[in-house]
Design a protein around this nucleic acid. Structure first.
Length: 426
DNA sequence: AGGTATTCACATGAAACTATTCTCTGAGTTAGG
DNA sequence: TAACTCAGAGAATAGTTTCATGTGAATACCTGT
């Protein structure tokens, strides 16, 4: 056992010494050239921001129907009446948030010069530490109305009262958008929704309208029926975009984002097809286009070609995995590092050997060692994330175990391994 | 040969424990009247 | 005296461990031919 351990230690250590040698001398002049090139070359992009997720475009193709309906539902606000509560659902990247914000912005703009007092608050319930508990939601809302509340220390109903009081101070219509509302309910239960839907009966002057946005269609089915009926007075469904619609969106944005003739329609179609394959997610399509543009620019090409798309696809996927691994808890990082490491010598691994390697690594890293039971669960989690492939097999007399191997291309595991090693101080 | 029992090496579940984060409370402090 | 802060108590929660039980098939062991 101990022999085994020290040899493993050595192996882990020996690899990091290999590469810190040759790069320093010629770096400087090359870097100068690179900068010169970059400055002299004209950018492919006119305005890269248009392709970013934050960008709110002026027109939203293929969503007129939804926007119109939203507008119709919200229109009573123009007359200082309370619009019906709305429940919106649709998959990610189908423009739910975008359309909602667009419509709200327009309506607020419209109302600006009149004497109607209309505001809206947008909260993304997914954001940790911002809006993922009842207290935080209310606190965030109160802040939104210009009321200071301490981040902690007050009873929830106290904050609630502060919020109520401030809200009712003036005659106004407040539209509250709760994005990813399913996360909120998942974490904290539907009590808060009940409170919020009932709030209007306690208000004298102000009126509150709720807009709930959810990715999960089934979400509305398993919440309190009282909440259900009052939250979804109106329902709005955003279907996924198909490839043609995605192409329209892309071409519209690409005209704004790129300089002329950089992109031909074949490339756009390819982007759209790729994203349509992934359940019509416009966000992905735009991302892909942006990265492809960057790749092309880096390759000093005059236009974005198919191969750039392919490369971008690859790059995005790699980034996604990298991001995933980076956000893993420490123990899982050690675990996946040991899997990567063992994978180099052997394709198919078993729980037992991984656990041994993991335990050794923990000792090296001076971290507490979790039990095999827990590791077993962590392995399942990694499997769910798609970082590894694990399936239960029975090897007869030799027991039952999981057969485990990494699904990540080896060049990427190399990169991650070295990053993890630095991070974990192995 | 065919059938049954054993055994391995974990998987899977449930309950108990722990550490961390949230809420709440009341004492102390501050500021305004 | 009301409003505000803040430390610390208690509740809720997530992450783990402990204990118990389950699993599928290669292998060992019988049994009767």
């Amino acid at each position: 056992m101990t022999d085994n351990q020290t040899s493993l230690d050595k192996k882990f250590k020996s690899e990091e010494d290999k590469k810190n040698t040759s790069e320093t001398k010629r770096e400087r002049d090359e870097l100068d050239d690179l900068f010169d090139d970059f400055v002299s070359k004209e950018s492919l992009f006119k305005d890269k921001d248009v392709l970013s997720l934050r960008h709110v475009p002026n027109t939203i193709p293929h969503r007129q129907k939804q926007i119109k309906k939203l507008g119709m539902i919200l229109a009573p606000a123009l007359r200082n009446d309370r619009p019906s509560n709305i429940f919106i659902y649709g998959k990610t990247g189908t423009g739910k948030t975008l359309c909602t914000l667009h419509t709200l912005n327009r309506i607020v703009e419209r109302v600006k010069d009149s004497d109607v007092n209309l505001t809206f608050a947008y909260l993304n319930c997914k954001l940790k530490k911002v809006a993922d508990t009842e207290y935080r939601i209310i606190a965030a809302l109160a802040k939104n109305l210009g009321e200071k509340v301490p981040a902690t220390g007050l009873p929830t109903d106290e904050v609630y009262n502060i919020f109520l009081k401030k809200l009712d101070e003036t005659e106004q219509v407040v539209i509250l958008v709760l994005d990813e509302i399913d996360r909120l309910v998942q974490k904290t239960g539907d009590e808060i929704l009940y409170t919020l839907t009932r709030i209007n009966s306690e208000l004298k002057r102000a009126k509150l309208c709720l807009i709930g946005i959810s990715n999960d269609v089934r979400f509305i089915e398993n919440i309190d029926p009282r909440v259900k009926s009052s939250l979804s007075e109106e329902e709005l469904i955003f279907p996924p975009y198909n490839a043609l619609e995605l192409k329209d969106i892309l071409s519209e944005r690409s005209e704004l984002a790129f300089t002329k003739d950089v992109i031909n329609s074949g490339v756009l179609a390819k982007c759209a097809a790729y994203a349509a394959k992934e359940h019509g997610d416009a966000r992905r399509a735009l991302d892909l286009l942006r990265v492809a543009g960057e790749v092309a620019e880096r390759a000093a090409a005059d236009s974005v070609e198919m191969e750039h798309i392919r490369e971008a696809e690859d790059k995005i996927e790699k980034n996604r995995i990298l991001e995933l691994v980076k956000t893993l808890p420490n123990q899982s990082k050690i675990l996946i590092y040991s899997i990567f490491f063992l994978n180099k010598q052997k394709h198919k691994l078993e729980t037992g050997e991984i656990y041994e390697a993991y335990a050794d690594l923990c000792k090296v890293n001076d971290t507490s060692i979790l039990t095999q039971r827990r590791i077993s669960d962590l392995i399942s989690e990694l499997d769910m994330l798609g970082l590894i492939n694990a399936r239960v097999i029975s090897k007869g007399r030799h027991g039952r175990t999981r057969e485990i191997y990494s699904t990540i291309p080896s060049d990427l595991t190399e990169i991650m391994s070295s990053e993890l090693r630095v991070e974990l101080m192995l």
